[in-house]
Write a protein that binds this DNA or RNA. Structure first.
Lengths: 222, 222
DNA sequence: ACCGATTTGTGCGTATGTATG
DNA sequence: GCATACATACGCACAAATCGG
C-alpha cells in the first residue's frame, strides 16, 4: 500500500493544495508546468494529466500558449457527467424530472411565503404570455422565479437540470408542444405566489410536473 | 496539422462517442490505450489525458494493469469540485445544506407514504444506534433511507452533497460531535417513516436540518 | 509460487502552435 | 517582424500492476 494514496488522484489533490496554500483566487495564474514539475517532483506527463483532470472539474482553466489559471468550479463537469448518464441509463429522464420537482416544489414554498416584488411579478407575467410561442420563456420563467432566493447553487442546479432535460427531450422524444395546459399551469403557479399562498403554489407546481411526467411516459412508450 | 476541433475537449468527446457507438454499458471494458490511439489517430499521451479527464467525471474507471472500463457516473468525483467551489467562496456552505434539505424533505414524504420493509427498518435502527460513535453511519443512514425510492440520480446527488459538505466541514470547521440531539432527530425521522406519517417525517427532517444550519452558523461566526 | 503476457503508469526528449512584449 | 515563454502534441522506453497458466 502506498502511503501517498493512489498516485494519480494524489497528484490532483496536491495541485489543489498548492492553489489553497498560495491563496490563489479564481482567475489568478497557477505555477507553470515546469514549476509544478519542480514543486511536485513528478514528470511533465503526470502533472499535465492531473491538471487536465482538474480542468474537467472546472477547478482550473487552461489557455493555450498563455497559462493555467484558477477556475470558478462551475457545474460544467456535472453537466457533461449528467449528459452521459442520461444516455447510458434508461429511466434517467424520469429521475431528472423528479429531481427538478423536488427542488422546485420545495423552493416555491419559500418564494410564495416571502413574496416577490411587483416588478419581478410583471416580468414573470410577460414570460407566461410568451410561453405559448417561445420555448425559451419556459426556462427563463423557472430561472427568474427563484432568482431572489439567495441560493446561487440551487439556481445553477435547476438551470442545469432543465438544460439537460431538454437536450435529451429533443433527442429521444417528440418536440413538446406548448399546450394551453402548460401555460395555465405556469399561470396558476404565478397567481399562487402573488397571493402568497405556499400550499397552493406547491400544489400548482406538483400539477405542472405531473403533466410533464405523463408526457414523458407517453414519449418513452412509443 | 491535427484534426479539427479543440484538441483536448474534442478528444474527450470522441472517446465518449466511442462508448456510445459501441453500446458499452457501465462495467464493460473500453478499447485499450493502443487501440484508442489507433481509433482516434492521436498520440498515447493525448489519449491518456482525455481518458483521465473522463475519469475525473466518473465516466470511465481506470484500473492499473488491467484496463479502462465504463463508469457509472456516480458523481462522487465531483465532490472535490463542489468542495473547491465552496472553499473558493463562489458558493456557500448554507447553499449546499439547503439543497440537501430540499431533496431530502421532499423524498422523505414519499418514503413515509410508501413505507419501508421491516428488514430495511431494522437496518436503519442499527445505523441510528451506531451513529453516536461512527460518523459514517450518518452517511449510510441517509443513503439507505432512500435506497428503494427508485431514483438512482437523486441518490447520487444526495451522496455528492453529503460528501462535499463533510469535506468542507472538516477543513473549515470543528469536527462535529454526534450529539444526542443528532441521534434523536434521526430516530424521530425513522419513527415517522415506520408510522407512515409523511407530515411528521417532513417535520422531523426539517428539524434535523435546522440544527445543522445553526451548527454551521456558529462555526462560520468564529 | 513463479512466469509471462497484457495493460496502465511514469519519465524524458523534441518539435510545433500560440500569446505576449 | 522578432524573440521569449508557454502550452500542446508526439514518440519512445521502462516501471508497476494485474491476470491467467
Amino acid at each position: 500500500m502506498n502511503h501517498r494514496g493512489r498516485g494519480a488522484r494524489a497528484l490532483e489533490q496536491r495541485v489543489v493544495d498548492v492553489i489553497h496554500a498560495r491563496g490563489l483566487r479564481p482567475g489568478m495564474a497557477l505555477p507553470t508546468e515546469p514549476q509544478l514539475v519542480e514543486l511536485l517532483g513528478a514528470s511533465r506527463n503526470s502533472v499535465r494529466e492531473a491538471v487536465r483532470a482538474l480542468q474537467a472539474l472546472g477547478i482550473v482553466e487552461i489557455r493555450h500558449g498563455y497559462g493555467t489559471f484558477v477556475g470558478d468550479a462551475s457545474l460544467s463537469g456535472l453537466s457533461t457527467s449528467l449528459a452521459f448518464r442520461v444516455r447510458a441509463g434508461v429511466g434517467a429522464i424520469q429521475d431528472l424530472v423528479e429531481v427538478r420537482e423536488l427542488l422546485e416544489t420545495g423552493l416555491i414554498g419559500t418564494v410564495a411565503t416571502d413574496g416577490l416584488s411587483t416588478a419581478r411579478l410583471a416580468e414573470l407575467d410577460e414570460l407566461v404570455a410568451m410561453m405559448a410561442v417561445d420555448s425559451e420563456a419556459d426556462r427563463a420563467f423557472h430561472a427568474l422565479l427563484y432568482a431572489d432566493c439567495g441560493n446561487e447553487l440551487v439556481l445553477r442546479l435547476i438551470e442545469l437540470f432543465w438544460d439537460t432535460y431538454h437536450e435529451v427531450e429533443h433527442v429521444l422524444g417528440e418536440p413538446a408542444e406548448r399546450t394551453e395546459a402548460t401555460v395555465g399551469n405556469h399561470r396558476r403557479i404565478l397567481d399562487a405566489v402573488r397571493a402568497k399562498d405556499p400550499a397552493a403554489a406547491r400544489a400548482a407546481m406538483q400539477k405542472h410536473f405531473a403533466e410533464v411526467r405523463t408526457r414523458i411516459a407517453q414519449a418513452t412508450e412509443t
